[in-house]
Design a binder for these strands. Sequence first.
DNA 1: TTAATCCTTAAAGTCGACTTTAAGGCAAGG
DNA 2: CCTTGCCTTAAAGTCGACTTTAAGGATTAA
Lengths: 128, 128
Amino acid sequence: MAFYIKEAAEKVNLPTHTLRYYEQEGLLPFIKRDENGNRIFDENDLLWLELIVCLRKTDIPLAELRAIVELTKEGDSTAAKRKQILEKHKEKMMEKQRDLDNAFIKIKEKIGFYDEIEKKYHKENLSF
Amino acid sequence: MAFYIKEAAEKVNLPTHTLRYYEQEGLLPFIKRDENGNRIFDENDLLWLELIVCLRKTDIPLAELRAIVELTKEGDSTAAKRKQILEKHKEKMMEKQRDLDNAFIKIKEKIGFYDEIEKKYHKENLSF
DNA sequence: TTAATCCTTAAAGTCGACTTTAAGGCAAGG
DNA sequence: CCTTGCCTTAAAGTCGACTTTAAGGATTAA
């Protein structure tokens, strides 16, 4: 189970350019090449890439993903540090959740307000 | 109840620069000035600003807020359009919520994984 | 009177995360 | 043989949302 960049990109629903950019930024450190220098993504690479995509949707900075990669290279002794990075991001995610909850209340209010204006406006403009 | 920019900025927890920038970008169209040309934020301005801040935390684009302002200037007949903009953003918010829910699952898994490595690592390094 | 602290405007700079452009290599199909 | 479509690299450009810098005006406190 190994894939060229186009297949990998399709699997994670990103442009190939972005995958190359991620590799360049140190997020994909173990990507092998075929005899022509083309990238080959194996199952492991894809799993990591999927986690990247999933966490990027919650706006984890590339720098934090890169930091995890660097720590991974240093071996098992860095597991606690890697965990810490993720815990910190999880806190941010929880804050976002709260921000969303607050915004839902406010946006519903405002939508209701616009509804009222709309109703009034139509009532006032009835011809008979 | 009216405030100069510094007080207003403190109330919504933004730098004064950002409030000026927002006005310049057409997000705060009704801000009055005192005899020296200083901005005066009234209760209404603050309420709108608070909504801006609340929705910005969910990444509503400035362009959408500006669009609402422009429609508001055109009067009550545009209430439906303004509502539509907010409904559309509410959809995005719901998608973010789903993204967060998915990411929570994955990040907990990964944290658990790092926990395992950590435990193993400490076990292997016991001297006796 | 001078320093501090507010305010003003306009313009330039920054940042993260891509995205686009340019120039070119390799392999298969017609 | 040539086009098509994949791949490569390096570098430049874009985008949104600020943020910083520069230059200066008005009010207050020492």
